[in-house]
Design a protein around this nucleic acid. Sequence first.
DNA 1: ATAGAATATTAGAATGTTCTTATATCATGT
DNA 2: ACATGATATAAGAACATTCTAATATTCTAT
Lengths: 110, 110
Amino acid sequence: MGRSAESFRPPTRLQILSELRKGTRCVTDMEEILPVTQVNISQHLTVLRNAKLVDFAQDGALRCYYLCRPKLVDGILDPLAADFPVIRKTKEQIDREKERAKRKPVASRG
Amino acid sequence: MGRSAESFRPPTRLQILSELRKGTRCVTDMEEILPVTQVNISQHLTVLRNAKLVDFAQDGALRCYYLCRPKLVDGILDPLAADFPVIRKTKEQIDREKERAKRKPVASRG
DNA sequence: ATAGAATATTAGAATGTTCTTATATCATGT
DNA sequence: ACATGATATAAGAACATTCTAATATTCTAT
């Protein structure tokens, strides 16, 4: 409801995936980066592990997590950031507008 | 629980913001792109409007939504997609590892 | 005035995420 | 064996998101 623009934050699970795209990370690494607790991070990692999106290599007491299906994660994250600052209308959008104009041919529409 | 990797989907609200980064979109445009109903899209747009992240220009019966704080949205979305395929350890990560090594100077750690 | 297209509102259920607290496991150094 | 650091599990509350169904509003053309 009264959520302000500044408080918008990407969901933790996506942030974790994003972090792991940059390289192997242990839980402590992520604790220092994400604004959530160790417990919450572990919970998400468990979910991601069950989904076979991540796995870890144990290094002493550390668990170094990594993406085990990076291409799949690309498919999830890349579309979110694809920026097309120049093209303001896509081909598809123009086609849809043509469709609409065809169904009802109006004059005043730039 | 048994969520599979393929079923991972970016949250609708972020997808909407992402769509709007590409240009002005009306609700019907987004309906054809996102796997959710018109109602759900309208609901999210209301939230985003209240948060002053988006606004619309009315064009006949269409409401053409656009980002009214694109820089802010960049700040939300860009970090998710920042990909560093080469650098596997960031400076910060190396620093943290040094810190740990200082606190307990161990031999077997490559 | 009426119809149809586009969009919005409302309300409730279902589901998902986050937070909190407490406790447990495992590895390492002493 | 014990302490400590790193991580995990469990369980419940709080909150957010999604879905569904029904209904309402606005605009445009007839």
